[in-house]
């Protein structure tokens, strides 16, 4: 079956759609678009498509991916155009390209994610102080966070190896951070954890409860680029 990789964004009102609801929203959009979908077998057939990596509720995604199977080959730009015309507000399609049938599953190819985080500050900061703060975190040998397991137990986890890049600049009353973090089946580092570590271990004066997080990109294995 021909497979297509769709590059899309989830912003504005749509960033509040949960992952489960996003699956349903895309399923309906694909049906409205009249795409020749491939349905799963069984009592309750669903069109076959899968996302690269779920986005948490409230986090916008500027370059997200999903792989979609069709029963017949269509020009990739027609798939993109038809789907784009049937999406609700805040979801847009940037393009589509065919994916070879033997390519690994999309979810398994995700390696890193780029984020932009807007942090409100409790007090003013100089650029030098900010640099110091970021440097402080990056020079720590390990950054241990506590995560809750599904059973509710607490578990220690070192996020430092999963922080690949961290830069920032002052923008009026807030700090704008850019970070590249580990993502995918090998493990995930969440931007909130990095911010909490910056606040807790390196003295970044974060105003609690006021983070705006945007996932700006996903790095896939083999660095497959997309139109």
């Amino acid at each position: 079956m021909p497979r297509y990789r769709i590059k899309f964004s989830k912003q504005g009102a749509a960033r509040f759609i949960s992952h489960l609801d996003l699956v349903r929203t895309f399923e309906r959009a694909m049906r409205r678009a009249g795409l020749p979908l491939v349905f799963s077998q069984g009592f309750n057939p669903h069109p076959r498509f899968s996302f690269a990596a779920p986005l948490p509720v409230g986090v916008a995604g500027e370059q997200e991916y999903l792989d979609l199977e069709l029963v017949e080959a269509w020009p990739a730009d027609a798939v993109a155009r038809r789907l784009a015309a049937c999406l609700p507000e805040g979801l847009t399609v940037a393009g589509a390209c065919p994916v070879p049938g033997h390519a690994p599953a999309l979810m398994a190819s995700v390696q890193r994610a780029d984020y932009r985080v807007h942090v409100q500050l409790k007090e003013a900061l100089t650029p030098e102080q900010l640099d110091e703060c970021l440097h402080c975190l990056l020079s720590l040998p390990e950054v241990t966070v506590i995560r809750k397991t599904r059973e509710g137990k607490e578990k220690f986890y070192d996020i430092r190896p999963g922080i690949f890049n961290l830069t920032g600049r002052i923008d009026g009353p807030e700090v704008l951070l850019a970070m590249t973090l580990q993502a995918g089946s090998g493990g995930n580092v969440r931007p909130e954890e990095v911010i909490a570590a910056l606040a807790g271990k390196c003295g970044l004066p974060v105003l609690p409860g006021a983070l705006e997080i945007v996932r700006t990109g996903l790095l896939l294995a083999g660095d497959e680029t997309i139109a």
Binding site: D21, R32, C86, P88
Partner: peptide, 10 residues
């Protein structure tokens, strides 16, 4: 469930 309050549906 903030999606309750934002509209923008199809």
């Amino acid at each position: 469930k903030p999606a309750r309050y934002v509209g923008g549906e199809w």
